[in-house]
């Protein structure tokens, strides 16, 4: 067994263990930290596949942004996770049974499955020679699939417009900051000097 295989089993085992801890840890903060550990191991697996760019993006985006956001939410909101988890064991037998039935069905389907010859050829897609990861991804996203990429952008625009249309309400009487008026104020109109008599107040 070569060293890459050792690392594969190391990363995979740690990832499965961390993923299991995410759902079983009592403390939600610990659960998020285990999630981050799982992300790091997934990044390691990507590295083994030769996909450095994806590995780095996974760390930057998921660990750097998403997981930190989770941590914030967990710490800011007072969610009683132990209460949410109650009944987990109670429903386990029924859920497990359904899961088992689905598993058997899937096994039946997969057993009778014939995979097209083209798919098998697609399983390993080698990197084009003389190209970095980033370049290959960029060529796929921005050249080969530019039409679909732009269409996806329009879908996001629609989602944004839709959210604004359905939720934005213009309230009357909201005080807005007007920097120009603020800067134009002079001490004469902003400050009033009064003589206060002793023991009188204003």
């Amino acid at each position: 067994m070569n060293i890459a295989a050792w690392f594969f089993y190391l990363f995979s085992a740690m990832m499965i263990g961390a993923a299991f801890m995410v759902i079983s840890a009592r403390n939600p903060v610990h659960a998020v930290l285990f999630l981050i550990l799982a992300f790091f191991n997934a990044a390691g697996l990507f590295l083994l596949l030769g996909a450095e760019f994806l590995a780095m993006i996974l760390v930057v985006v998921y660990v750097g942004a998403v997981a930190v956001l989770f941590l914030f939410v967990v710490m800011m909101l007072d969610v009683d996770f132990t209460e949410l988890k109650q009944g987990f064991l109670q429903y386990l037998p029924a859920g497990g049974l359904i899961g088992l039935v689905v598993l058997i069905e899937v096994a039946f389907v997969v057993g009778a499955w014939t995979i097209g010859p083209v798919s098998i050829a697609n399983v390993t897609t080698p990197m084009p020679p003389g190209m970095t990861n980033t370049m290959a991804l960029g060529r796929v996203l921005y050249t080969q699939y530019v039409y679909l990429f732009q269409a996806a952008g329009l879908i996001l625009l629609t989602a944004m417009i839709g959210a604004i249309v359905l939720t934005l309400r213009h309230k009357a009487g909201v005080k807005r900051q007007n920097v120009a008026i603020q800067n134009a104020r002079t001490p004469a109109e902003a400050v009033e000097v009064r003589k206060v008599a002793s023991r009188q107040g204003i």
Binding site: I155, T158, V165
Partner: peptide, 21 residues
Amino acid sequence: LIALYLGLELMSLALYVLAAF
């Protein structure tokens, strides 16, 4: 299939909002 799905979603997403306009 990808263009089909993207077109369908672009169409539908706007329709959901229009229905609740």
